[in-house]
């Protein structure tokens, strides 16, 4: 994460870094995310309802600061915390980071009503359910018998007892997983595919051939999904979907994989020819119309995030609300 180092100057590779709008005379773009195309947003065409991983983001108000950050900042800031969380025990620390991430998303991200509801209601519900299911799998022998929670039996089936201690262990695990997910959503919900590729190529110096090929490959996914549906229907018509059980299932999968692979390879070859014919890979760099910058605010965001994170850890460990251990099999609160 070299680009995450504070102070990395924006060094655009290709010439002429000023994006120029074709219709309107060169507008001094207020934010980097405002692409030259945005003036015509909604001029024609149905806005797709489904989230389009390619769609450039429409201009967002200043308060939605996550959209104005470099994608790399949004990955770099939570990354050390995510690593630390894997080795963290207890309920308090993951919970604190879930709240932090939720707060950042609610303030800093432009979310639809549905996404907001899913975050605020779905996340707690998921934590409770996950906590219960993980709790069931906790080996009772590994829970300290002395603790008070171990003697609180929530319910029992025959000899087997589901204790509060087991539930708390399960809950801690569920919280850790949720915290990891929420932290990755900081970037995930506020970054488009092209933005990420631009940042990787321009700021992190990933070869553009890899970045843009990956972007092109993203287009294959829905296509192959549709094609698989057609192949399954075709095989149903042939009557080869008969038979139950795992053997028949494996046979069916192989039978559908062959036509899918054949058509996937053919499609990929055609796309490759089309890209070649349009000079892809001709030069060591390519023109970037939109410059991905690393700004002071990106550094500020990363540093601030790290400081807050360190503070949370320091406070929780001081108060004895959790622990950090390299032993990932250790059960603990």
């Amino acid at each position: 994460m070299s680009a995450a180092t504070p102070g990395t100057a924006p060094t655009p590779t290709p010439p002429t870094p000023t994006p120029v709008t074709p219709t309107t005379p060169a507008t001094p773009t207020p934010a980097a995310q405002t692409t030259p195309a945005t003036p015509a947003t909604g001029a024609a065409g149905p806005a797709s309802v489904v989230r389009d991983p390619y769609a450039e983001q429409a201009p967002v108000s200043g308060i939605r600061f996550l959209h104005h950050l470099n994608p790399l900042a949004k990955f770099a800031a939570p990354l050390p915390v995510m690593l630390a969380l894997i080795f963290t025990r207890g309920v308090a620390i993951p919970l604190a980071f879930i709240v932090l991430a939720l707060g950042l998303l609610v303030i800093g991200a432009r979310l639809s009503g549905r996404a907001l509801a899913a975050l605020l209601l779905g996340v707690p519900a998921a934590i409770l359910v996950l906590g219960f299911s993980f709790g069931i799998w906790v080996d009772p022998a590994r829970i300290e018998g002395a603790s008070a929670a171990a003697s609180v039996v929530i319910f029992a089936i025959g000899d087997w007892q589901f204790t509060l201690a087991a539930y708390l262990v399960g809950l801690a695990t569920a919280l850790r997983i949720t915290a990891l997910l929420m932290l990755s959503l900081l970037a995930g919900l506020t970054t488009s595919g092209p933005e990420l590729v631009r940042a990787l190529v321009q700021n992190l110096r990933v070869p553009y051939r890899i970045g843009y090929t990956a972007l092109a490959a993203l287009r294959f996914v829905p296509r192959f999904g549709h094609e698989l549906e057609v192949i399954r229907a075709a095989h149903r018509v042939r009557g080869t979907d008969a038979g139950r059980g795992p053997v028949a299932a494996v046979r069916r999968t192989i039978a559908t994989a062959i036509p899918l692979l054949a058509s996937a390879i053919r499609h990929a070859e055609r796309v490759a020819l089309a890209m070649d014919a349009r000079a892809f890979g001709a030069h060591a760099t390519r023109t970037e119309r939109t410059i991905s910058r690393w700004r002071v605010r990106d550094t500020a965001f990363v540093v601030a995030f790290w400081v807050v994170s360190a503070a949370i850890y320091w406070w929780a460990l001081q108060a004895g609300l959790g622990g950090v251990t390299p032993d990932r099999t250790e059960v603990g609160l």
């Binding site: 870094p17 000023t18 120029v20 991983p53 092209p194 796309v271 089309a274 000079a279 030069h283 023109t287």
Partner: peptide, 28 residues
């Protein structure tokens, strides 16, 4: 279907000239 690489029409048309290292203003 097998000729589309990017996510918007404008990016798609710019893809070729960008690869040719044409200046951004001329690409547009």
């Amino acid at each position: 279907d097998a000729q589309v690489v990017t996510g918007t029409l404008l990016d798609e048309v710019c893809f070729g000239p960008e690869n040719q290292l044409v200046a951004a203003s001329e690409v547009l």
